[in-house]
Write a protein that binds this DNA or RNA. Structure first.
Length: 306
DNA sequence: AATGCCGCCAACCGCCGCGAG
DNA sequence: GCTCGCGGCGGTTGGCGGCAT
């Protein structure tokens, strides 16, 4: 007997989220902040599983998420981090704050996996074989090999990052891919789910105030929401500050303005900013001065193996 | 124009870790 | 120390859209 499902199957809606559901979820989180997902369906009236609500928020409604095509820069980072960390998408996503683990996972499975050259796949296979066959090595020998692997991955990541002269901007969400990538194709074809859609939805919502129950939407106006792409000095206030309902209105922008220091229910709470990696990569004697990061990488690489 | 195939991705499912009681 | 419940994570799938025939 496994654990019972997180919610009753009966009466739980499944499938794509509707704009109305998104609004209900966003307005609730704006008032109460992310978390306590168990209570979200009951408090919002959403006929959704708590997990579904959390997933919807973290993957699509959470501010700061960059939709659209992956840049070459991001692509290379993913490839090398995947080689380094394996299919630990949440860990990989923590290095790409604008991307969700689900996005990265999908992108890997649909693009990068097949894009990998056979030689790369061999390398990956060797690396994973090195992990899986670790039991055949004495621990000291295995550790040396792992260190070598990490050095190799580090060098590869360094190569990838050095292809670009400008550091990645994970603070500004509206940063467009530097390449000629087109906007996210799905966004135009369906309700998919970005906060841009929510904004448009809110616009219509606010234009027809009588057509809905204002209690479920909250007090914020669309005028605030349309500025989601407007750069502004990020407040130190995060989503958690919105638990104070008086602050919620004052800092309504913050909910839709990405703040790298704020983690709106992001996959990982222990983010290592990308710039930290780059510092680690580019700094001379990095292995000495950033022993903590190295040990973190080592720890992450080896977790689950012992 | 109609049909089938394929790729992509949003969402679900099940397991795991961790903290509270 | 044990149990339970919640949140997080990774694998998988179903549906939709685009493309080929």
């Amino acid at each position: 007997m496994g654990r019972p499902p997180c919610c009753e199957k009966i009466g739980v809606k499944k499938g794509p989220w509707t704009p109305e559901e998104d609004i209900m979820l966003v307005s609730y989180i704006q008032e109460h902040g992310p978390g306590n997902w168990r209570s979200v369906p009951t408090n919002t009236g959403l006929m959704r599983c708590s997990k579904s609500c959390r997933l919807r928020w973290t993957n699509y409604l959470r501010p700061g998420i960059k939709r659209g095509n992956f840049t070459e820069h991001e692509e290379k980072i993913i490839i090398h981090l995947q080689a380094l960390l394996g299919n630990r998408w949440a860990a990989i996503a923590s290095y790409l704050p604008e991307r969700t683990d689900n996005d990265i996972k999908n992108y890997w499975n649909t693009h990068l996996k097949k894009k990998m050259k056979p030689s790369d796949q061999n390398e990956e296979g060797m690396e994973q074989e090195g992990h899986s066959s670790s039991s055949s090595h004495p621990k000291g020998q295995w550790e040396r090999r792992l260190q070598t692997d990490i050095q190799t991955a580090k060098q590869a990541l360094c190569d990838a990052l050095s292809l670009h002269t400008t550091p990645p901007t994970h603070v500004v969400p509206e940063t467009k891919p530097s390449t000629s990538h087109q906007p996210y194709s799905h966004a135009s074809s369906s309700y998919a789910s970005s906060y841009e859609n929510i904004s448009r939805l809110m616009e219509n919502w606010m234009k027809t105030p009588n057509s809905h129950d204002t209690n479920s939407v909250g007090d914020y106006s669309f005028n605030n929401m349309v500025n989601i792409n407007t750069p502004r000095s990020s407040s130190s206030e995060g989503a958690h500050s919105t638990t104070n309902t008086t602050c919620a209105q004052d800092h309504v922008f913050d909910l839709f303005t990405f703040n790298s220091s704020t983690n709106y229910g992001a996959p990982s709470q222990t983010q290592a900013p990308l710039t930290m990696i780059e510092d680690w990569l580019f700094e001379d004697g990095a292995s000495q001065s950033h022993e903590d990061l190295m040990s973190m990488s080592l720890e992450e690489s080896t977790s689950g193996l012992f």
